[in-house]
């Protein structure tokens, strides 16, 4: 099943035309997207660094995770909300961009990791985790989200 009809439909929406025909909405949405990237990456790193035995190492892991979670979740919602108009107003460019699909695949894997293993791990007593797995999860998480960011920027630069 090809998603092309879906992207064509999205690109044809009045909503998409609005962003293409007006001057400020697109840059404003892009700015909010980018500020949210910073908040998201910060929340991510608080926990990933902690899993690596770095960062806020004297604070218990579950406490760091609890502090980061609302920001991680909140900024993600903003990223989705500000990502959608950017995607729909340039739907076919996105559809034909390998970097867009790369970003979305890494994003999907990142979300799955974050809400399953990583979340469970971050709420577990550290002594039960052992020395290796927390580091594997943290490095995987950092690698996935860095890939999302790189893929995203390359859409604009190379597609």
């Amino acid at each position: 099943m090809s998603l092309q009809p879906f992207f064509e439909w999205m690109g044809g929406l009045r909503f998409s035309a609005f962003f293409l025909e007006s001057v400020w909405p697109t840059p404003i949405v892009q700015c909010i997207h980018l500020v949210s990237v910073a908040v998201f990456v910060g929340a991510l790193l608080l926990v990933d660094l902690r899993l690596l035995g770095q960062g806020l190492k004297e604070t218990p892991l579950p406490q760091v995770a609890r502090a980061a979670e609302p920001w991680l979740f909140g900024s993600f919602v903003v990223l989705v909300v500000t990502g959608i108009p950017q995607m729909s107003s340039t739907a076919l460019k996105q559809y034909y961009s390998p970097f867009f699909w790369w970003k979305m695949e890494m994003l999907l894997l990142g979300v799955i990791l974050t809400v399953t293993i990583r979340r469970k791990m971050a709420s577990t007593e550290e002594s039960q985790l052992g020395p290796v797995w927390p580091k594997v999860v943290a490095l995987t998480s950092i690698a996935l989200w860095t890939s999302v960011t790189i893929g995203a920027r390359l859409i604009g630069l190379l597609s």
Binding site: V37, A38, G42, A43, L44, L45, L154
Partner: peptide, 22 residues
Amino acid sequence: GYVYLLTAHVVSMGLVAGIIGY
């Protein structure tokens, strides 16, 4: 050159602004 530089600039921005933000 510009592609590598801007991409690394955005990724490192996340690190800097993300941490300073907290």
